[in-house]
């Protein structure tokens, strides 16, 4: 069969597929009849394509059929993951379960953070100029590490003396500040996460410097003997943020684990798998940071006594525990049972 005859015999099914694809390209869903027609035409066109690429590889018709097959393939084998309907189960079932299934990297990141917080505290206690050294590991900004932070300490000190230790948080344009801070936090979370690709070293650096900074910051208040106030106020602003930064570092370590310990998978597949799992957790982290950041915009402006602060702290703590520790646990078990026979 020559190309001309081939075209004239088979082109009716190509034009039919073209018409169907044109309709489906707008996002319309195929009904039952259309779908059967689509699969039938797809099979016909793929076989035409393989015939054409064998016998007329240089003919224009082969390129045309290649494009037709590619487009039909994209529609038939599409995974519809972007449905709004799936967002809620994904957020409250898939993500917490992913987190619990991949717990070791997160435990690692938490322990690194705590370890370096201790280091920062002890360093501030026993080293000369320790506080300013460790505070100079500017929170969450690796680019600005080692900047001069003595001003920050002096201001906090004078604030403590004047009776309002947390005046650094008060600023004339609070909603703007907190909006900026929330996005900055998300940026840092992304940085922690993406830094995992360097075998986790960048993630480790961000985590360690932040840990030391928090430790040194805590030391200022320890020195002035207002520890309870510290926990109550700093946690009000930072509990969710700090936890989320630590978790995003955990997601970074997930990628590092995929890179360093691919197991039986090829390296590329292992990276891809850990990346697609970790990024889902990171999306949830970004949502947490967004919500906590915008709430903070309101909270910061309010006058609060310590009992109310304690209550809010307790609430956000139990929310964290509930979501990351328990959400979606039961559903997963039943899903596993129903899935087993099939």
């Amino acid at each position: 069969m020559n190309a001309t005859r081939f075209i004239s015999v088979h082109s009716p099914s190509w034009t039919a597929l073209e018409a169907l694809l044109k309709k489906l390209r707008t996002g319309a869903k195929p009904d039952g009849k259309e779908f059967r027609q689509l699969t039938k035409l797809y099979r016909a066109v793929t076989s035409d394509y393989s015939y054409a690429s064998t016998f007329f590889p240089a003919h224009d018709i082969t390129g045309y059929l290649n494009r037709l097959v590619a487009e039909a393939h994209a529609i038939i084998y599409r995974r519809r993951t972007m449905k709004a309907r799936l967002a809620i189960p994904w957020l409250f079932r898939t993500v917490p379960n992913l987190f619990r299934k991949n717990f070791p990297p997160f435990a690692l990141s938490l322990s690194i953070f705590v370890l370096f917080a201790f280091t920062g505290f002890l360093g501030a206690e026993y080293m000369e100029e320790g506080e300013s050294i460790f505070l100079s590991f500017s929170l969450t900004q690796p680019e600005e590490a080692f900047a001069d932070n003595s001003m920050y300490i002096n201001q906090t000190e004078s604030n403590i003396r004047s009776g309002d230790p947390f005046a650094v948080y008060d600023s004339p344009m609070q909603s703007m500040m907190s909006s900026g801070i929330a996005f900055h936090n998300i940026r840092v979370a992304f940085f922690c996460f993406a830094g995992g690709i360097f075998a986790g070293l960048v993630t480790f650096y961000v985590l360690a410097t932040n840990g030391m900074m928090v430790g040194a910051f805590f030391h200022i208040f320890y020195r002035h003997d207002i520890i309870f106030e510290f926990w109550n106020t700093v946690l009000l602003h930072g509990m969710i943020e700090l936890t989320m930064i630590v978790f995003s570092a955990g997601a970074g370590f997930m990628i590092a684990r995929g890179l360093l310990f691919p197991g039986s998978l090829p390296l590329g597949d292992s990276l891809r798998q850990s990346g697609t799992q970790a990024v889902q957790i990171v999306i949830a982290i970004a949502l947490w940071l967004l919500i906590s950041g915008s709430l903070e915009g309101f909270v910061t402006g309010l006058e609060m006594n310590s009992a109310l602060k304690l209550l809010i702290n307790f609430l956000s703590f139990s929310l964290l525990i509930f979501y990351w520790g328990f959400a979606g646990k039961k559903k997963e078990r039943t899903a596993l049972v129903t899935a087993a026979p099939a």
């Binding site: 075209i7 082109s11 073209e18 224009d60 390129g63 494009r67 690709i197």
Partner: peptide, 26 residues
């Protein structure tokens, strides 16, 4: 790097053609 991790590629879009063109051409 991002493409490696996400398993994505960036491709050129083929110009949309119709089988009718080929029938006419030949």
């Amino acid at each position: 790097f991002g493409d490696h991790l996400a398993g994505t590629v960036v491709v050129k879009e083929a110009k949309t053609q119709s089988a009718k063109n080929f029938i006419y051409k030949d």
